[in-house]
Write a protein that binds this DNA or RNA. Structure first.
Lengths: 241, 241
DNA sequence: AATTATTGTGTAAAATTTACACTTTAAATT
DNA sequence: AATTTAAAGTGTAAATTTTACACAATAATT
């Protein structure tokens, strides 16, 4: 009796298949958002490719053979900003044929939110620069598309989860929080309704402190209660404005 | 005067960098959802790796050097189901070090929604099988995680956009539509409120036909107005249940 | 003709969202 | 010290959306 035709491949067979296919390079690009002077910013670097000389690009690197994708993104963040322990989320993977002028490079985009006031944050490289998100026109590679996708996703996420706090200093006033949301969503919000909404969710901790050095009545300062948020996040419906 | 130290790399330099790094293989895996007998289904194939013999896996393949990611996903769908022109959306990219037992393979997951009643649909391969989504336990590789991620994303998407229609025949009754939503979201919905909601959005076309061969009062049949949806999608707030 | 199973329909209460203006406070100015 | 300035802090009513809920109509089956 003849054995039934089998579809099962050995390891060897698979390995051969992988090796014989032309390889594709894999990179990670980070869209690093910050918030400063009431503006949403993104951290960019001058392109290191001659073709894109003078253009700005996202912070990225090839993924190392022995590191995961998230890991690669964290490495880039750490290298470029000195920060670890920051918000980081995969956004989308971009793999159009012609997206890189030299090689076939598929890139996994990550969105990161950092607090630019953080004392550890040092922009180590003078090729790096914080750009206003609304003054970005063209960029190197397909990075404008990646950036646009990431910003859209941030706008969506920030309505569903209070991620925005990652962009603020630990202590912040409600005005700062509202400015942040207005900057991200690019809308004007009603102050009373905004306050009502945020107080109705239970994760602002009143610090019993107030702003200093403001030329008017100072606002109270709060911090975000991550613990309470983690617990209540599931049964919260998001922010409607 | 000495020229300032430059950060600019030539094509050559980049190419060398890419080539010298150990390469990572890239694949695409499709989570193909269907809806049949009032149950949400997913199309799986018996694993072709000896290690996972007897386990089921998603439909995937290595990405070819000259094809984009979406393109690769469409190719797989076409090969396995005979269908083109179906809903397809990238979900997430999985790149943990040990996720593939033989090689370093990073995979881009796609979610696809197909109408299993479609006349073109032929499951060509008898290694393929439609599984109830709620009876899936372990799978080959990290495919259970990929599947869970895709299902969660589907549940979320289906509340924001009426994607569900892709899973139904062209003509459907409101009961079928509700069954679909109940199957995807795994909840019971109020019939009157469900109908109200769907009629309040304007993209059901009354076909002036009714179900046949039902042993009770037949329901009216509708079809989905893709054109109207495309126009009104932007200013629609999603489905709350 | 009666039974059966499901379709089709409306309304009232509850919850959420929106629109909107005046008083309070601290710093800066006179 | 009094006045000015700029933003903080606060409540309510209307509109909208969501939820809960029950009975008459219809076609097929008996």
């Amino acid at each position: 009796m003849v054995a039934a035709k089998s579809n099962i491949k050995t390891y060897k067979a698979f390995q051969t298949e992988v090796e014989s296919s032309n390889r594709i390079a894999l990179s990670v690009d980070c869209v690093i958002f910050g918030f400063d002077e009431n503006k949403l910013k993104v951290l960019l670097i001058r392109s290191d490719l001659k073709k894109y000389e003078g253009k700005w690009s996202l912070l990225g690197d090839l993924v190392l053979p022995d590191e995961g994708l998230d890991e690669a993104a964290y490495r880039i963040l750490k290298q470029r900003t000195g920060l670890s322990d920051v918000f980081l989320e995969q956004v989308h993977t971009f793999g159009e044929i012609g997206r890189h002028p030299v090689n076939r490079v598929v890139t996994v985009a990550y969105c990161s939110l950092i607090n630019v006031q953080h004392h550890k944050l040092k922009i180590l490289d003078n090729e790096l620069h914080w750009h206003d998100v609304d003054s970005i026109s063209d960029m190197a590679f397909d990075h404008k598309i990646i950036f646009d996708t990431s910003l859209s996703q941030l706008q969506k996420r920030v309505r569903e989860h209070p991620l925005g706090f990652s962009l603020l200093p630990n202590k912040f006033s409600l005005r700062e929080l509202q400015n942040l949301y207005e900057a991200i969503l690019n809308v004007k919000l009603d102050r009373r309704n905004f306050r009502k909404k945020f107080f109705s969710m239970d994760f602002l901790i009143d610090l019993d402190e107030v702003e200093t050095d403001v030329p008017h009545r100072p606002g109270k300062l709060y911090r975000f209660d991550y613990v309470k948020y983690e617990k209540s996040a599931k049964n919260w419906n998001g922010i409607a404005f």
